[in-house]
Simulated scan of single mutants.
Amino acid sequence: MSLTFYDCKTAPSPRRARIILAEKGVPHELVEIDLRSAEQMGEAYRAINPNATVPALKLEDGTVLTDNAGIAAWLEAAYPDPPLMGISPLEKADIATWQWRVEQEFGMGVASALRNANPAMKGRALPGPHDYEQIPALAERGMQQVDHFFDRLDAHLEGREFIAADRLSVADVTGFVFMDFAKVIGKRPGEEYSNIARWREGLRERPAFQL
């Protein structure tokens, strides 16, 4: 099956899909999109993904999946081994719950803190084709969200190797990527978060997480 993956090595969102592709061993062609030069806003790329975001995954029949949720769901169905969204109904529910928590409580906090405070993103407080002004109060709230999530995740990881369902899942992928990216807002889990440190070190040993 011929797949084309639209990537940007410096951005966290496509890294999530990149890790899933690698964990599942899915062959694909790679096209790098330069976000620094705003290539995603150009006509050529917007003809592929009108959302003007990465990642995107073009399927063999020409269908283009334009977000991480759709890409992960399609890859899980088309390449079920290894399963990253659970096997039993309870596993699927647990992973879906934690994937939502990581995105909403942590990822949104990092994004809000970055996009509402970074001068380079003035007028671009949200990704996509439309321009939005920054709201400084959202940056402050985002920093608080990150601190609260560090507390919650470290407590949850006590005695656990993975975030959900006792297996590697998309929740680990998302959490790991956001944890690395949080350095852009000056947030790193300190020594007091020993469970987070153990979890991260375990994932770093996997080749897919080194991409």
Rank of each mutant, 00 (worst) to 15 (best):
K9S: 09
P14C: 03
R15H: 13
R18C: 01
R18F: 03
K24A: 01
V26A: 00
V26W: 00
S37I: 13
Q40N: 15
A44Q: 10
N49Y: 02
P50L: 08
P50R: 05
V54I: 10
A56L: 02
L57R: 02
K58Y: 02
K58R: 14
L59W: 11
E60D: 15
D61H: 08
D61F: 08
T63H: 03
T63A: 06
V64S: 00
N68Y: 00
N68G: 01
A69F: 01
A73G: 06
A73H: 08
A77W: 03
P80Q: 06
L84W: 06
M85C: 14
M85W: 09
G86H: 02
L90R: 14
E91T: 05
K92S: 03
K92T: 09
E103I: 02
E105P: 03
E105F: 10
G107E: 03
M108E: 15
S112R: 11
S112P: 04
R115F: 14
R115C: 05
R115P: 04
N116P: 05
N118D: 15
M121Y: 15
K122H: 10
R124F: 15
P127M: 09
G128A: 08
D131Y: 04
D131I: 03
Y132S: 10
Y132D: 03
Q134F: 08
P136E: 11
A139H: 09
G142I: 08
G142C: 07
Q144H: 11
Q144L: 15
Q145Y: 12
V146A: 07
F149G: 04
F149C: 11
D151Q: 09
D154V: 07
L157F: 12
E158D: 13
F162G: 05
L168K: 00
S169Y: 04
V173P: 10
V173C: 11
T174L: 15
T174A: 14
F181D: 10
A182M: 07
K183I: 11
Y193S: 10
Y193R: 14
S194K: 12
A197W: 07
E201P: 06
E201N: 11
E205L: 13
E205T: 13
R206E: 09
R206T: 09
